[in-house]
């Protein structure tokens, strides 16, 4: 066995809940929702961390408006992520220097094990994890290496996305992972397909976020992001997440 796997539970022992944002389809808003949720929890005075596990294409730092040259992790018996806008934030981009990072699956798995084994989160109410599209290494590593993750499944009303999340819900169910809920993003009309699908797997539709045409202009400026209707909906979602987690 890889010795690093043994220390991961110790790294997470002060974390009350791990909430990965997952969706097999790209472009549904995982990064925006995970990053905005982290900001919303920080606003509520919660100790919150955000781990960008989109190893080959990390972009949460852009949403957080983080200057990665200014903010760097500290070394203290491991890697201590810096606080950015109230969020303890970890990304591989601290080390890849803005360069491309094309990796095969085995290398992605190695990088994730290294991060999980060496990052010191200390005490957190919530650790949010941004994952890339697909049901591949990042998702499987979260399922396999982290104890009791509570994934937030993000989808759009698109039939393509809905078909994809059903596969993810099945994989999570087969692994005994209980999803925290499904969030429908970019909603343009009232439909019941997602609620029905979530219900089929015993998962609640816990948020519906209308399409916000102004959201793109807010990316990179947290002050503007927090003024959007999108963020207002995410804030409501944050309250619901806290209730669901008993926090």
């Amino acid at each position: 066995m890889d010795p690093r796997l043994l220390v991961i539970s110790k790294r997470m022992e002060g974390v009350k809940a791990v909430v990965p944002a997952m969706s097999p389809k790209g472009g549904v808003g995982k990064t925006l929702i995970a990053s905005s949720l982290a900001l919303a929890f920080a606003e509520r005075g919660r100790k919150v961390g955000l781990l960008d596990l989109d190893v080959t294409n990390a972009s949460s730092h852009i949403v957080l408006g983080a200057d990665l040259n200014e903010s760097k992790p500290l070394e203290e018996k491991g890697v201590v992520p810096p606080l950015i806008n109230g969020v303890k934030f970890m990304t591989i981009c601290y080390y890849s220097g803005g360069n491309p990072l094309p990796l095969r699956g085995g290398d992605v798995d190695e990088a994730i094990k290294e991060v999980l084994a060496t990052v010191i989160w200390s005490q957190l109410d919530l650790l949010l994890i941004d994952t890339p599209p697909g049901i591949s290494d990042e998702v499987l590593d979260v399922v396999n290496y982290i104890s009791e993750p509570r994934p937030l499944i993000v989808t759009t009303p698109s039939k393509l996305s809905i078909a994809s999340i059903e596969k993810l819900l099945r994989v999570l169910s087969e692994n005994g992972v209980k999803a925290l809920g499904v969030v429908e993003n970019m909603v343009v009309s009232e439909e019941s397909a997602i609620k029905d699908l979530a219900g089929k797997y015993g998962v609640e539709l816990i948020g519906r976020i209308p399409y916000d045409p102004f959201i793109e202009k807010s990316i990179g400026d947290v002050r503007i992001l927090k003024s959007t209707s999108f963020f207002s909906k995410v804030s409501s979602l944050a309250d619901k997440v806290l209730v669901k987690l008993g926090l």
Binding site: Y95, G97, N99, E110, E114
Partner: peptide, 12 residues
């Protein structure tokens, strides 16, 4: 950088 996460060698 490589010391912390060896896989970032692919970036350099």
């Amino acid at each position: 950088c490589i010391h912390f996460i060896p896989e970032v060698i692919h970036s350099y």
